[in-house]
Computed example of a mutant assay.
Amino acid sequence: MSVDNISRADELVPSRYAVPVGDIEVLVISDGVLPITASTLATTTPPAELAGWLDDQFLPRDVVDWPLNVVVVRTEGRTILVDAGLGVEFPDFPRAGQTVARLEAAGIDPGAVTDVVLTHLHMDHIGGLLTEGLKARLRPDLQVHVASREAEFWEKPDFSHTVMPQPIPDVLRRTATQFLNDYRGQMRTFEAECEVAPGVLVSRTGGHTPGHSIVRLESCGERLTFAGDAVFAPGFDNPQWQNGFEHDPEEAARVRVNLLREVAATGEALVATHLPFPSVCHVATAGDVFRCVPAVWDY
Rank of each mutant, 00 (worst) to 15 (best):
A197P: 15
Q166N: 02
V257A: 01
D4T: 15
P234V: 03
A9K: 09
D109E: 12
I108A: 15
A96P: 12
F90H: 13
R204N: 04
S219L: 02
T225A: 10
S2D: 15
A9H: 12
F245G: 01
P35M: 05
A105E: 04
T43L: 03
A227F: 10
A105N: 02
V202S: 10
D288W: 00
F236L: 07
G206Q: 07
L180N: 13
V28W: 12
L103E: 12
G221H: 07
D92K: 12
R78C: 15
E193Q: 13
T205S: 08
R149E: 07
Q143M: 05
C281R: 04
G87E: 12
A272L: 05
A136L: 09
N181P: 02
L259E: 04
A192P: 00
H145C: 12
T225L: 13
D65T: 03
G207M: 06
H282Q: 06
S39Q: 08
V280F: 13
E132S: 07
M1E: 15
L121M: 13
T162I: 10
G127R: 05
E195Y: 06
D182E: 15
V116A: 14
A286C: 04
I126M: 13
I24L: 14
R291T: 07
F290V: 02
T114W: 12
V70D: 08
A51R: 00
Y183V: 05
R261P: 07
T99A: 06
E155A: 12
A38T: 02
M187D: 11
T285R: 08
T205V: 10
E262G: 00
M123L: 13
R173Y: 06
A227R: 01
A105F: 11
V21S: 00
T43A: 01
D158I: 00
A253E: 02
E222W: 06
T273N: 09
V73T: 14
P110M: 03
R74Q: 13
R174E: 13
F90A: 11
A192N: 05
P276D: 11
L217S: 09
G244T: 01
V289D: 10
V271K: 02
M123G: 03
V289S: 13
P35W: 08
D109L: 08
G133W: 11
V71G: 09
A264C: 04
D55Q: 01
Q240G: 14
V82E: 02
I126H: 09
T43P: 01
E49L: 08
A192L: 04
L142V: 03
D170F: 00
G267E: 03
Q98W: 05
A42Y: 00
V293I: 11
C220S: 15
D55S: 08
E76T: 09
W241I: 10
V117E: 03
F226V: 05
I36G: 08
A253L: 07
G206R: 04
E191F: 09
S7C: 15
F179I: 04
S2Q: 09
F277T: 04
C220Y: 11
V63C: 01
A18W: 15
C220T: 11
Y17E: 14
H212W: 01
P94A: 15
I168R: 02
R137C: 12
D141C: 11
L201G: 00
T162P: 04
P20F: 14
F93M: 07
G267I: 01
Q143P: 09
W297M: 04
E150Y: 04
L50Y: 01
V73W: 08
T177N: 08
P239Q: 12
P234D: 12
G127F: 10
